[in-house]
Amino acid sequence: MRDSDQKQGAPLETIEIAVEEAAAGARLDAFVAANSERCSRSRFKALIKEGQVAIGGRTIVEPNYRVNAGELVSITLPPPEDPTPEPEPIPLNVVYEDDDLIVIDKPPGLVVHPAAGNWTGTLVNALIAHCGDSLSGIGGVRRPGIVHRLDKDTSGLMVVAKTDAAHRGLSEQFADHGRTGSLERAYKALVWGCPAHMAGTVDAALDRSGGNRMKRAVVKFGGKHAVTHWRRLARYPKDPASEAISSLVECRLETGRTHQIRVHMAHIGHPLVGDRDYGAGFATRANRLPEPARSLAAAFPRQALHAGILGFRHPVSGEVLRFESPLPEDFAALVAAIEAALTSR
């Protein structure tokens, strides 16, 4: 085993372990735990599930993968754990709250949990201040009560557990993604162009992008199963005889992968307005809009994505709860400007 050279101040470290003949057939999590004292087997198992382990350049996310002789296993280690997040008096838009959980409407720009570059000013810091000790230890040191997340620049509804029982119950529902239970999640997205059909499904596996580990990409082999169901809500301009510049769609998730909606919509040729990561090549589409919509679309500072519907069964009472959130001010203003600018077309 050898640890790769690490530049001073670099946040990640990689361990590489060669599989010898005697170890062939072992479970991946057991193999790396037996050949490295850096982490426990449970921690290595978590790292595998998080996509931090690769073999021959291919990300492996199954801890029970059987290793083969001659393979080179690469494990990316995150930075050491930092101190427990501190409470911060950050305003929260509380939609619902009881002794077991809290539902908030997250504004764009708010990071969900502390991580490199965002150790303070996060939703977790705000929740600790709001809920106090009821969140302590639930979900891990950095993510108390968090059972799902939204990207920093995605707005909308989130539920957070306040007790261990609620955390377990909600986690089970989110793991099922509503296939057999009461979980319901729907997002509104403003995209460039207009899908040819009124509704459709994107079934395409996702993995880390080869060019940028912070991004995701559709892959033909390996990766994580990902399914997004979408339907068109509005077309701009409305006249079907005119060229479609933009459209509003609703997306429902059958799986919950990082950047899933953003990558899937870009994959079918309709990236989200404002998405610099997955829709940069479409930014000039804003030039086709009349003013003032042109300037608003060109300067929109985030992906136009909002988690507008959240439903689930209360993990303690069993009651089915459902919440709806209107488009936030910036998103609604952009949609209104585009619709008004293209009404006469």
Rank of each mutant, 00 (worst) to 15 (best):
L72P: 01
D330N: 00
G211L: 14
H113C: 09
I268A: 08
R231V: 05
T180R: 08
T120E: 09
D164Y: 09
G169A: 14
V94C: 02
H306Q: 14
E319I: 07
H225I: 05
A129R: 04
P80W: 02
H148G: 05
R179I: 11
S36V: 08
F221K: 15
H113F: 07
F300D: 07
R41W: 01
E291F: 00
L253D: 12
R179E: 15
T343H: 01
F282A: 01
R179P: 02
A115M: 13
V335L: 07
R66N: 07
G169N: 13
M214C: 07
G308V: 08
I102H: 10
A304N: 04
R208I: 12
L183A: 10
R288C: 00
P237T: 04
S295P: 03
A217M: 07
A298R: 11
A165Q: 13
N64T: 11
A24T: 10
G279W: 01
I15K: 12
P87H: 09
S247N: 05
W192G: 00
N64E: 07
V61K: 08
V112F: 05
D207P: 11
E50K: 14
A175P: 02
R232T: 11
T120Y: 03
P237I: 11
L327H: 00
D164W: 15
R179T: 13
T228L: 10
L296H: 12
L28C: 10
Q303R: 02
G137S: 07
P237D: 06
A126I: 03
D277C: 01
H229S: 13
A199P: 02
P79W: 08
E16Y: 12
I48P: 14
K215E: 12
P290L: 11
R38E: 10
Q8V: 12
R213I: 09
E172W: 06
G9A: 07
Q303V: 04
H225K: 11
F331L: 06
V53K: 10
C194F: 05
R168E: 13
N212P: 09
L272G: 06
G121W: 03
S209W: 04
Y65R: 15
E339C: 03
A199T: 03
L110Y: 00
D99L: 12
G318M: 10
A293T: 00
V95H: 04
A115Y: 09
G56Q: 12
A341L: 02
A336R: 06
T163Y: 13
V191C: 01
